[in-house]
Simulated assay, not measured.
Amino acid sequence: MTNSKEIFTLIKELVSIPSPSGNTARVIDFCEKQLGGLGFEMQRNKKGGLLVTIPGKNANQHRMLTAHVDTLGAMVKEIKPNGRLKLSMIGGFRWNSVEGEYCEIETDSGEIFTGTILMKQTSVHVYKDAGEAKRNEDNIEVRIDERTTSAEETKALGINVGDFVSFDPRVQITNSGYIKSRHLDDKASTALLMLLIKAIKDEGLELPYTTHFLISNNEEIGYGGNASISPETVEYLAVDMGALGEGQSSDEYTVSICAKDSSGPYHYGLRKHLVQLAKDHNIDYKVDIYPYYGSDASAAIKSGYDIVHGLVGPGIEASHAFERTHETSLINTEKLLRAYVMSTITTY
């Protein structure tokens, strides 16, 4: 069984690679390099996601598991007359969650500039409404760490409309067993899938069914895992975060099994199978409903695939903002994933 130090190390590496949806080549390169020496069939789909296939005893019925490496981020919407940048969101976050955050701007040529995301009314010594002004795209701007006070000077740096902006993850691992960072959604689960693939190789495990692992790269914008699904696929399990908050049953210490999200109920038979596996293997779990949520699995269903779909993942506090989870949630998720890939497909 993988230890928490190994899990934390891989998560830290993943969150430290900027990968807003639409600009994920670097992190996919990293995943491909990490998994490339294992000898499994591996290919990139046309969207740029990474697909790893492990043959199983049964080649007529397949499984698919997915996690995504694309993250929230932004694009340069406008270069303002003062040389600062107006942003357009990538993914569903709120402006207040990135106020004061350090960021990187990547130009078309690959040059990186740093900056800070701020309200234009930040200084309380100048702006009477510094606290009350709306946190929105009209008031939020990027202060670039370069000597620029005009649109012309910013453009001369090579910064243009359409350049990607990524947020500093600020990753920290605590002595009390927490990892806190932006983009644990969904790089925490990506790390778990990568380590599971490695464990299957290292331990010589023979899977009961041919199993595909998709590291998708467009989930935050709704369509990362809705393709590259073989016609033999019976079950599709998205491995994403459990959403925490008031009224939720999930927490930072158990694996969350989703019963329903904004797309509707997940497959009841698969959900019961996952719950039974958790009970059989003494895995701490919670069943939950995520009211404002969608996954790669629900995207695949909406695309018309005739599959059984499910969703599990570690509980992530403060999703799409200042995220955190505990090592026990990661370990419980890893245990359930291992039990699942070795289990028998239920007749639904």
Rank of each mutant, 00 (worst) to 15 (best):
S4M: 08
K5I: 13
F8R: 06
L10C: 04
I11H: 03
R26M: 10
I28Q: 07
K33T: 12
Q34H: 11
F40Q: 02
E41N: 11
N45K: 02
N45I: 01
I54Q: 01
G56K: 02
K57A: 13
H62G: 08
H68E: 07
T71P: 06
E78R: 14
P81R: 10
G83A: 10
I90H: 01
R94P: 00
R94Y: 11
V98W: 03
V98S: 04
E99G: 00
E101S: 11
E104L: 14
G110M: 10
G110H: 10
I112D: 01
I112R: 13
T114D: 09
T122G: 00
Y127F: 15
K128P: 00
E132T: 15
R135F: 09
N136P: 00
E137M: 06
N139V: 01
V142C: 05
I144G: 04
E146K: 14
T149K: 13
S150R: 10
N160T: 13
V161A: 04
F164A: 03
V165C: 07
V165H: 04
V165Q: 08
Q172C: 12
Q172E: 14
G177Q: 04
Y178A: 09
R182H: 10
A188Q: 06
S189A: 14
T190P: 00
L193M: 10
I197H: 09
I197L: 09
I197C: 07
K198M: 14
A199T: 09
I200E: 01
K201G: 01
E206G: 00
L207P: 11
T211A: 09
I215V: 13
N217M: 01
N217V: 15
G222Y: 07
G225V: 02
G225T: 03
V234D: 08
E235N: 12
Y236P: 05
M241V: 15
G242Q: 08
A243S: 08
L244Q: 03
E246S: 08
Q248R: 13
S250G: 15
S256K: 06
D261L: 07
Y268E: 13
H281Y: 14
I283L: 05
K286W: 02
Y292W: 10
Y293P: 09
D296V: 08
S303P: 00
G313R: 08
P314V: 12
I316Y: 07
I316Q: 07
A318V: 04
F322R: 12
F322A: 12
S329F: 09
N332E: 15
Y340K: 07
V341Y: 09
